[in-house]
Design a protein around this nucleic acid. Structure first.
Lengths: 116, 116
DNA sequence: CCTTGACTTAGAGTTAGCTATAACTGTTAG
DNA sequence: CTAACAGTTATAGCTAACTCTAAGTCAAGG
């Protein structure tokens, strides 16, 4: 039942234990279980959640917004619309970002090509 | 000859005057001309340089590294190899980043598709 | 001449996101 | 039994990249 200690979770998701505790303190990981000695026990769905947090963060969403998304998620079906709108607008942002990165890639390639 | 005041340059490159002065102070913009009253006059090539700085920064290069690149650039042909290596490795980084963004995009799309 | 406004400088303050420290506690190997 | 170890909390410190403030300068319009 107790799947991961903090150091195992840390290794699994490639974030330091500091960061995991920090995320929890910031409200991004509500409901992480603790054992009788007060030590964190990460479950499979915590790991999954962290994976999605990394996805959102890696695409430029702030921790504050991720927390907001999480709280909408916690409120279930009644907040589905709002939550989905958030994801849709984030998706648009990612698409734009990819486009920008491609433009910048071309600029760097051009600079390399110059050979000066 | 005096092409842009700081506020005109600011509008042109979409960075605040604060940021332009900060970049200069940090050594990213050496040789910006000043008029008799000590006010900055940005030339066309300063604007171009800022454009490339934005490109490097927008693809995740730190100001410190950008400054380093700039100083290699200033040393001309003898540092060409080093400078180009920097750009090549940065290019690889951008390619990887685009790949990651695409992966994350898929994750977000999948989450949207779930409709839960 | 006087005010206005855009500029100057040095340096302080802010924000995000960690990262580390100190002091402590419970588990385990010898 | 005890020493080492892996965890805990609260809180302080750090870095990057701005962002702003204060006090002052200068050129131009009325």
């Amino acid at each position: 039942m107790s799947l991961y200690t903090i150091s195992q979770a840390s290794a699994e998701v490639d974030l330091t234990p500091y960061t995991l505790r920090y995320y929890e303190k910031e409200g991004l990981l509500p409901g992480v279980k603790k054992d009788s000695a007060g030590r964190r026990n990460y479950q499979a769905d915590d790991i999954q959640r962290i994976g999605f947090i990394k996805c959102l963060k890696g695409t430029g969403m702030s921790l504050k917004q991720i927390k907001e998304y999480g709280s909408l998620y916690a409120q279930g079906k009644k907040k589905f619309e709002e939550r989905n709108a958030m994801l849709e607008s984030h998706k648009a942002k990612i698409l734009l970002e990819i486009k920008t990165q491609k433009k910048y890639l071309k600029m760097v390639e051009a600079k390399i090509q110059m050979k000066i």
